[in-house]
Design a protein around this nucleic acid. Sequence first.
DNA 1: GTTCCTTTGAAGCAC
DNA 2: GTGCTTCAAAGGAAC
Length: 419
Amino acid sequence: MPQLNGGGGDDLGANDEMISFKDEGEQEEKISENVSAERDLDDVKSSLVNESENNSSSSDSEQAERRPQTRPDSESYEKTRDYFSEALRRHQDGGFFKSPHYPGYPFLMIPDLTSPYISNGSLSPSARTYLQMKWPLLDVPGSAGLKDSRSPTPGHLSNKVPVVQHAHHVHPLTPLITYSNEHFSPGTPPSHLSPEILDPKSGIPRTPHPSELSPYYPLSPGAVGQIPHPLGWLVPPQGQPMYSIPPGGFRHPYPALAMNASMSSLVSSRFSPHMVTHPPHSLHQTGIPHPAIVSPAIKQEPSGDNISPSMHSPGPPKKEEDKKPHIKKPLNAFMLYMKEMRAKVVAECTLKESAAINQILGRRWHSLSREEQAKYYELARKERQLHSQLYPGWSARDNYGKRKKRKRDNKPDSTPEDA
DNA sequence: GTTCCTTTGAAGCAC
DNA sequence: GTGCTTCAAAGGAAC
């Protein structure tokens, strides 16, 4: 098990896997830093297309749809230019900062711009992206790229406009391409692009702390000081509200994205607005609304409004289980990586199927250097640690069977357990 | 509207 | 200890 012991040199766990992927990563590095990502995408996409063709006899339309994706030379280039122009225009007229149309992505892009390359330049785009995220949790040994990554604030990032440059073949504006402003509430200032973060309550500009980067455990300001948090990074050094919640709650499906950089990797639907604005149901015993908490109704049936029945009816609980909020599993390292990089991959290619994206992400994951993966392992470890602190009695087993039964494999010998 | 797909990792369970 | 299973995220595709 890839269990980090925290601080140990060989604490990555999954060492065997690391060894194997190391070669792959080196290969990619040899190929070219610039082309690795594209080749990776091309490779995956090609295989996906082939598989798709073989398995499901993809229609010509699908092929036609995907082929240009694999070689987006001319058309995509023109699109890119258009996007670039569009984004540049937005940037110039200020709208770029006022109303980001790419809620999740800037956080991924900006780091690349702050310090695009690590000394040896061997890191993959994603790696650099990650390394530049001012990881709040980690002491990254010998990471040259992180040398000054602690000091950067959104303020210093503000003049690093993603459209200016981007490493590799990634379209400089790909983040702008993928997302529409419908994901983002126009009124929500992109704190990562703002020189300072305004305190949602006081409106006073404040310097964001890396601690804010963890949206997984959005502690209310009052709750922060109530518990001895296992992770020091969760506690703001200046006693300022770390997980400041916009008045009225988040409207964005990825609300915390508006907070700052590495949010994108950490933020997700786990941080659902209802959990923030209506903590009573998902409040932990410490009074802390945990993003991993999802009411049974919400979790089991994501559709519809996310109001837990228990919220509507404070009356007697139906069952013991119904009363218990659904506490999600802490994300593992790959999941954290996936959350962070998904938008980037989506932006780099036109694939939209999560399955395909995940394949790419899986490859990229293996292409990450040991150090880069280590950070995710470490973060995941802290996630689990914090999770266990918040929910001492929780067990992964608690969630067993809460999902709709998955048809695990289409193996003919597998008997359908479903009635 | 629900489930599948697809990835890796963590955890639980059976043996 | 080993191997299998489930769940975590994501969102389009398929049903």
